[in-house]
Design a binder for these strands. Sequence first.
DNA 1: ATACGCTATATCGAGTGTCGATATGAGAGA
DNA 2: TCTCTCATATCGACACTCGATATAGCGTAT
Lengths: 108, 108
Amino acid sequence: MAKMEILQGTLDMLILNALKLGPNHGLGVSRRIQQITRGAFEVGPGSLFPALHRLEDQGWLVSRWGESENNRRAKYYQLTAAGKRQLQAEAESWEHISLVITRALRAT
Amino acid sequence: MAKMEILQGTLDMLILNALKLGPNHGLGVSRRIQQITRGAFEVGPGSLFPALHRLEDQGWLVSRWGESENNRRAKYYQLTAAGKRQLQAEAESWEHISLVITRALRAT
DNA sequence: ATACGCTATATCGAGTGTCGATATGAGAGA
DNA sequence: TCTCTCATATCGACACTCGATATAGCGTAT
């Protein structure tokens, strides 16, 4: 019996998902989300960075300062083991919930 | 390029959807959502009634006082033409967005 | 009669998330 | 140096969800 709240966690899930293939920095995560969703989703910095800090506070990401492809200083985020488990759990929950909603909308 | 905000409108969409087969009162809508989603979603009064009032304010529902099946006074909500169009639009948007997210999660 | 329980609508405050705008800093290139 | 761009960060406004609580009416049992 899910609440509607879980849909608010979708951005967090997409961020974890964008990091599952390897570490990346903030704006890189944003770009990767846009790529993977074929431009369907756009994440501005006002949503992105609070989300990254949330996820790090919860122990699902760790960060370290490094250099971006263009020699800019950038903070690289990486999934932790707990983050991978969290992504797995959220992905399964999403599969279930999205299917249920889609069926509800299609039902006569 | 959708924002994450649209996912917050999912409850509104489910309410409109619950009314597409005919008018119903508040708690009836809540029960119908629970039925249609096979118990996957639970909507408490603290989320339900603000949502109903939102939708009425936007002209997507109209209400009239009546009597429930058990002779209780109840406010019946009904989709307007604009509400049907809105439901249609939101359902199409949902189909697209949910597919995109599901594909993103499944992608290697 | 009256006390209780159920249905039904409604509202409140706390917590949270998203967004646009803005700020800060640092490297690249002219 | 001056400017542009990348990159991180924060702020306040706004909206939504939620649990808890309030109000009211009807039915039923005591």
